[in-house]
């Protein structure tokens, strides 16, 4: 028979679930950065002399666009390792 789950175990399990769902937010920046890299490759193909300038601009834009995925990573790490919801029990 299914015994009861202790409330501490329940909160830990839901924190782990929330951490997994939070990382779904990394789909967006991965998709967008791939499109940006494709456009950079197209621009290099059109004008090969400007390659280093185009590469620098692309790396700068991609690192800024990656920020929202970093925010979701921080939420997931805080849920897993700091476990703030346990203190509300």
């Amino acid at each position: 028979m299914l015994q009861g789950i202790s409330s501490e175990g329940f909160v830990l399990g839901c924190s782990a679930l929330g951490a997994g769902i939070a990382m779904v937010a990394s789909i967006g920046p991965g998709f967008g950065q791939g499109i940006a890299a494709g456009k950079a490759a197209e621009a290099v193909g059109r004008q090969p002399e400007a390659q280093s300038e185009i590469t620098r601009t692309m790396i700068l834009g991609q690192a800024v666009a990656e920020t929202s995925s970093i925010y979701s990573l921080i939420i997931a790490i805080i849920l897993l390792f700091v476990q703030p919801l346990l203190s509300g029990l």
């Binding site: 690192a63 990656e66 920020t67 970093i70 925010y71 990573l73 921080i74 790490i77």
Partner: peptide
């Protein structure tokens, strides 16, 4: 806020 979180998130996730 975004500059500090970007640097912190990248380096700490690598360390972890």
């Amino acid at each position: 806020v975004s500059m500090s979180f970007r640097l912190f998130g990248n380096i700490m996730s690598g360390t972890l």
